[in-house]
Design a protein around this nucleic acid. Structure first.
Length: 941
RNA sequence: GCCGGGGUGAUGGAAUGGUAGACAUAGGGGACUUAAAAUCCCCAGGCCGUAACAGGCCGUGUGGGUUCGAGUCCCACCCCCGGCACCA
């Protein structure tokens, strides 16, 4: 074969047709092979169509799934459409078409755009969330949630977007604005369906550990769930039978709680109004807080405000002291119990509030110094208390502070105060003994109301020392070293390397800020001013103090239940019927789906009612329970409903009896590799929630839906901005495929950089992979007998590509194939077997050109049905290798060595190299290091 | 502020503690061509040095440290991106 031009258009059309005709990618379950379920986050078919950023993830899964199939797996790799929700509806409103029509058209456009890229989707499993046969099961899941009490009605104020004219979930907000349109949301009380996602908060958190997901996504989920362990503690109110329950994570600071704060919405503010002396003032404050917007309420920088509840005092259960009560809007009603105990000494916000209102600030926690993080405290060993003084030694010329670093601990250079000694005498003695410094001035006592703690250990016991710290300024760096002899310290001059403990001068912010600037200390530490708990660590004390005051350890979460109603047209109707007598009743399952009716006008009403409310003959129905007159629920589900379970439907898309059959679910679940970007919180948290629920009711067999997640970095426009019609910088994949070919396009997107990186598109760079395809084509024209010199790089390439695809490191896989091509070109040709193996590893990236060349080599079956090549370990290393020679770590030459060279042979050969010999002659060779195949390093002094 | 991830040529990026800058793009030079495109060959981190070689020094955000050897490990700091944030 020779002379034929590489015509990507002709070849790609030919093979796309042939794959479709032969049903190459149709998947069935009856297979003895291991299964692989490789899934993309299915797209939302917007009116804008695809830009080159969209297919990046699809290309990755295409490569991965083709590879898995060649490796003998039974692969499920489907595609579908997530088409309900606001974007489609807004697009339809704007263009004056019915959303159903708009969605159909958009899907057709997307499909057309995808088709030219050569994906191996099994289109026989295509699904669409707006298809009644699909949303029947979305509604079915809702009904199961309802039956288990996990879908409930609420009238609590929710987030309302005035522009989208619908209520939103917390997850739909970007801070205080609607994530879709950027409008500031309002609070509105509307009857809402809410899903109890909080019931799954704990399991969603712990099961994250079982997942092979990127760390930043796990972290985002952990942040969003926001679990905190703490205590609930009751404070009695004087003169009433009422108590205030607070939630705190810092029960260890209870002795420092000098006031109590209620959120303005707290019910006790109303209940106690009879006893509140300044009732008018309080009511005014509460009303003002209610009128504030979310932004005003939640801005952490603004000055704290509040009003004391005069005539009411609470009792601190730890020490029995009477403390004042306030109402203040820095306390949120929706978190914890809506009431806090305020500890101004150890909480920034309480501190700011206390300063403003002149409330007592009491230190109850002192820092525990474990500067290098290693505690000298040993479990199971007796702990004794003694008084110590510690110098905070400061160099007079700068702000470095001295600590001592021993083999196991870091501490101040202080020590125990002996009988009859003053603090100053102890300090002077210890500083000289332990550091050798003799010229210093003992300055002020730091934090006279607190204590410095240090953990030390002697042979037989732990010491927990209580005492003071003094600022000590070193006047000069005159220093003698000390060592211990016969148990006595004796000042002797010793060489530096004989000093066991070295001193260090960390620029230690903690010490500086806390002790010299007296900054608020909000970390864990050791208790002081806390009666019987003095000396306990924060961690121990949280439990002990909670128990002592009769509180209980609890856990709270930041995540809120999922507001599930939307006052919009284009969504799944919520399958509920409201009956005056029986209340909210489930639509019987055999009446599903509740079809979304056609309407004349589906514009949102803005009143909080869904457009469906106007369709009287749809709304009015009979109660399934009592048969009496009843009305249908008119709100619809949010955009995220359909996508919360679609991955299950692909396993069994045509099942009309169940959302997925038990056998098929068992065969395919879980999704082995899930690929997508964005949705770090919303989609992934909702889908995990529904999945866990389905697990609980026996509908699925795994506790998590997506075993492995690969995060996709976006593609920016060439100008570095987001690709958008608005900026006129959109690049259409179809144009790129026309100009450069699908194979070059696919390979370029994988070669751009690490898969998870966001990178700007570069039309110039795609020429590189287009050239690569041309060169592969020309290389195939030079096929002949195998060239032994290519074996090593060929097998290295097979190994690297195999491993890199598994690890989603596509960019280095491509570069390795380029290295191979460069090598083959240098040899001026390639053997038939060698070319075949090379084409096979290239096939997932460039499926068309490789299938064409495979056919030209005489194969009648598709390359994609062939068996993935394996590499030969013995061929990974060349017979001779270049070894660099270093002198004291600097490269001075290199030699060629046989792969079996012994150390002696290697060193002898290296010493003979002229450039090396020169350096060796200049000094004395002290040591030689030989790392076979890599490097020789001579240490010369 | 807390948590997660980063900082390497002009650019995208490579590099199990072992010759930093693979691979590619843009760039420079040359061959082929009447010319251009395409293709092929060569150069290419910085500075010094040489007629040209040779050679030397510096270099992966900054400063320290560990090591025969550090982009990679440790400590401190600076900056960038992402998540959360009056969450007690």
């Amino acid at each position: 074969m020779s002379g034929e031009r590489y015509d990507h258009k002709e070849i790609e059309a030919k093979w796309q047709k042939r794959w479709a005709d032969s049903g190459l990618y149709k998947t069935t379950e009856d297979s003895g092979k291991p299964k692989s379920y490789v899934l993309d986050m299915f797209p939302y078919p917007s009116g804008e169509g695809l830009h080159v950023g969209h297919p990046k993830g699809y290309i990755a899964t295409d490569i991965y799934s083709r590879t898995k199939r060649m490796q003998g797996h039974n692969v499920l790799h489907p595609m579908g459409w997530d088409a309900f929700g606001l974007p489609a509806e807004n697009f339809a409103l704007k263009n004056k078409v019915h959303p159903r029509v708009a969605v159909e058209k958009n899907i057709a456009t997307f499909k057309e755009q995808l088709s030219v890229i050569g994906f191996n989707y099994d289109w026989s499993r295509e699904i669409n969330t707006t298809d009644p046969a699909y949303y029947k099961w979305t509604q079915w899941i809702f009904l199961q949630l309802f039956k288990k009490g996990l879908a409930y009605q609420s009238n609590e104020p929710i987030n309302w977007c005035p522009s989208c004219m619908t209520g939103l979930a917390n997850e739909d907000l970007d801070g205080n604005v609607c994530e879709r349109c950027g409008s500031v949301v309002e609070k509105r009380a509307l009857p809402q369906w809410v899903l109890k996602i909080t019931a799954y908060a704990d399991r969603m958190l712990t099961d994250l550990d079982t997942l092979r997901w990127p760390e930043h996504i796990k972290t985002a989920q952990r942040n969003w769930i926001g679990r905190s362990e703490g205590s609930e503690i009751d404070f009695k109110l004087i003169g009433t039978d009422k108590t205030v329950r607070v939630f705190t994570t810092r029960a260890d600071t209870l002795f420092g709680a000098t006031f109590l704060v209620l959120a303005p919405e707290h019910e006790l503010v109303k209940e106690l109004s009879a006893q509140i002396e300044n009732k008018d003032e309080v009511e005014k404050y509460v009303a003002a807080a209610a009128a504030k917007t979310e932004i005003e309420r939640t801005n952490a920088d603004k000055e704290k405000t509040g009003v004391e509840l005069k005539g009411i005092k609470a009792i601190n259960p730890a020490n029995g002291e009477e403390i004042p009560m306030f109402v203040a809007d820095y306390v949120l009603s929706g978190y914890g119990t809506g009431a806090i105990m305020a500890v101004p000494a150890h909480d920034e916000r309480d501190g700011a509030f206390a300063k403003k209102y002149n409330i007592e600030i009491r230190d109850v926690i002192s820092e525990k110094f474990e500067l290098n993080g290693i505690s000298a405290e040993r479990p199971g060993v007796e702990t004794v208390h003694r008084k110590v003084v510690d110098p905070i030694l400061r160099d007079k010329d700068n702000n470095f502070y001295l600590v001592k670093e021993g083999p196991e601990h870091v501490h101040f250079a202080g020590g125990g105060v002996e009988e009859g000694e003053t603090d100053e005498q102890t300090l002077a003695r210890e500083i000289t003994e332990e550091t050798g410094f003799t010229d210093f001035t003992i300055g002020r006592k730091i934090l006279p109301n607190s204590t410095v703690w240090a953990y030390r250990h002697t042979k037989n016991r732990n010491q927990r020392s209580v005492g003071y710290a003094y600022e000590v300024i070193l006047n000069s760096d005159t220093r003698v070293h000390s060592e211990v002899e016969d148990g006595k310290h004796e000042l002797v001059k010793v060489p530096k390397d004989k000093v066991l403990e070295t001193i260090t001068w960390p620029h230690h912010r903690h010490i500086f800020e806390q002790y010299l600037n007296q900054k608020l200390f909000a970390d864990d530490g050791v208790l002081v001013n806390s009666g019987e708990f003095d000396g306990m660590t924060s961690e121990e004390a949280r439990k002990a103090i909670t128990e002592k005051v009769g509180g209980k350890l609890t856990t709270t979460y930041k995540i809120k239940d999922w507001v599930f109603s939307r006052q919009r047209y284009w969504g799944e109707p919520i399958p509920i019927i409201h009956c005056e007598k029986d209340g909210a009743v489930a639509v019987p399952e055999d009446q599903l789906p509740v079809l979304l009716p056609d309407v004349e006008s589906y514009e949102p009403s803005g009143t909080g009612e869904s457009p469906l409310a106007n369709i009287t003959d749809w709304v009015n129905t009979t109660c399934p329970t009592c048969g009496g007159p009843a009305k249908r629920e008119t709100n619809t589900m949010p955009q995220w409903a359909g996508s919360s379970w679609y991955y299950l439907r692909f396993m069994d898309p045509d099942n009309n009896a169940a959302l997925v059959s038990k056998e098929k679910e068992k065969y395919w679940a879980p999704v082995d590799v899930y690929v997508g970007g964005d949705h770090a919180v919303r989609h992934l948290i909702y889908a995990r929630f529904w999945h866990k629920f389905l697990y609980d009711i026996g509908a699925v067999s795994t506790i998590e839906p997506f075993a492995r997640l690969e995060f996709l970095g976006f593609i920016l426009a060439e100008d570095g901005r987001k690709m958008s019609k608005r900026y006129g910088n959109v690049i259409n994949p179809t144009d790129v495929v026309n100009n450069y070919g699908a194979d070059a396009f696919r390979t370029y997107e994988m070669f751009m950089g690490p898969f998870e990186n966001t990178v700007a598109w570069s039309t110039a760079s795609i020429a590189g992979t287009a050239r690569f395809m041309e060169r592969v084509w020309r290389l195939a024209e030079k096929v002949g007998n195998d060239i032994p010199a290519l074996d090593v790089v060929l097998h290295q390439t097979i190994k690297k590509v195999t491993e890199d695809i598994e690890a989603f490191k596509f960019n280095t896989a491509v570069s390795q194939m380029m290295i191979f091509l460069n090598a083959a070109e240098k040899e001026g040709g390639i053997g038939k077997n060698q070319l075949e193996m090379f084409l096979q590893v290239l096939a997932p990236f460039a499926p068309h050109i490789t299938d064409e060349l495979w056919e030209k080599l005489g194969h009648t079956d598709s390359i994609h049905a062939s068996t993935w090549p394996s590499y030969d370990e013995s061929k990974l290393v060349a017979d001779t290798v270049t070894v660099a020679i270093q002198i004291n770590g600097k490269v001075r030459g290199s030699i060629e060595l046989g792969k079996g060279a012994t150390e002696d042979e290697a060193l002898t050969a290296a010493r003979a190299v002229e450039a090396v010999a020169k350096y060796l002659a200049e000094g004395k060779e002290q040591k030689a290091i030989y790392v076979p195949g890599k490097i020789i390093n001579f240490v010369v002094v």
